[in-house]
Amino acid sequence: MTPPDAPDSPGSPDPANRWSNLDRPPLNVTALRRGLLRPGALWTSVDVVQRTGSTNSDLVASGGAEGAVLVAEEQSAGRGRLDRTWSAPPRSGLFFSVRLTPGPGVPVGRWGWLPLLAGVATATALSRAAGVDTALKWPNDLLVTVDGQERKAGGILAERAGDSVVVGIGLNVSLRADELPVPGAGSLALAGAGVLDRDPLLRAVLRSLEEWYGEWRAAGGDPAACRLQEAYTAGCATLGRTVRAELPGGRELVGEAVAVDGDGRLVLATADGVQEPVGAGDIVHLRPAGS
């Protein structure tokens, strides 16, 4: 059935009309709420807005209870680490943030695992729901393989908000090659994903996130006890490679990435035999050593 506000005739997509590009239909917020909001579940609210600057900024500013989910069909000022920008055409991806409140049972020192947990949860969900392998580049990138090359298809940003952490996830779903923000980017479509319908993909990611978060919190945030550290290590494409960590003040550290330690830091084995951990907050860029 044709939506009531669908265009009467074909033509150029109208950004003001959410039905103007039927290859990229809007999310069904009613179905999302029906599938995710249930007694005892982590998720307490699901809201979808047509356009906003940043779902993370909005959720940080709004306060509210744990389990809030805010999704945008388009972000005009999406942010990554160090305020790097993230943009994509309307309804071409999943751009959302969630509020998590680990509570007193999880030491604050372990909250740094939340963006890594979100990466594991997203990769697990995409493997199940879309049939596409997603690797993790430490600390916050989601990689897919396009034409034999690893490309960034998503990113994760975690921000402290009082006694909570707001975790934002951006994922390119249906972007075509000519729509990529940079040549080295990717999308689920370009990676040959079997499912590009954003509704089941979003539900799958949120359910996976709920499962991993619940196990992590039940373990007091111990990443080894809940097997989060093991899962992240297994899916991390950074490990085993020689990388150059660009640090504040122009300092560089070159070494083989050999482990992710119990604090979520990347451990580099340098040429002089020293193993040095670096935290996500210490990194400006992490690149292959030869680049």
Score class of each variant (00 low, 15 high):
residue 202 L to W: 08
residue 154 G to D: 02
residue 166 V to I: 15
residue 135 A to Q: 10
residue 144 V to H: 00
residue 183 P to M: 12
residue 252 E to N: 10
residue 150 E to Y: 08
residue 266 L to R: 03
residue 243 V to G: 06
residue 244 R to Y: 01
residue 173 V to N: 03
residue 209 L to I: 01
residue 243 V to L: 15
residue 227 R to K: 14
residue 202 L to D: 09
residue 173 V to L: 07
residue 144 V to L: 01
residue 248 P to L: 00
residue 176 R to S: 13
residue 172 N to C: 02
residue 147 D to T: 14
residue 151 R to M: 07
residue 228 L to V: 11
residue 180 L to N: 11
residue 240 G to H: 15
residue 160 R to P: 04
residue 162 G to F: 13
residue 190 L to Q: 14
residue 155 G to N: 08
residue 180 L to E: 11
residue 178 D to G: 03
residue 226 C to D: 03
residue 201 L to A: 03
residue 242 T to H: 09
residue 194 G to Y: 03
residue 244 R to G: 00
residue 249 G to I: 13
residue 240 G to E: 13
residue 185 A to V: 13
residue 232 Y to F: 13
residue 170 G to W: 02
residue 226 C to M: 12
residue 270 T to Q: 07
residue 249 G to C: 12
residue 216 W to F: 15
residue 127 S to Y: 12
residue 213 Y to N: 15
residue 219 A to G: 04
residue 248 P to M: 07
residue 246 E to S: 10
residue 143 L to I: 15
residue 147 D to A: 12
residue 159 E to W: 07
residue 240 G to C: 06
residue 259 A to K: 11
residue 129 A to W: 01
residue 228 L to F: 11
residue 268 L to D: 00
residue 255 G to T: 08
residue 168 G to F: 06
residue 265 R to K: 08
residue 236 C to H: 00
residue 217 R to C: 15
residue 252 E to L: 09
residue 188 L to M: 05
residue 159 E to R: 06
residue 259 A to V: 00
residue 222 D to S: 04
residue 187 S to K: 01
residue 172 N to I: 00
residue 201 L to T: 12
residue 162 G to N: 13
residue 172 N to R: 04
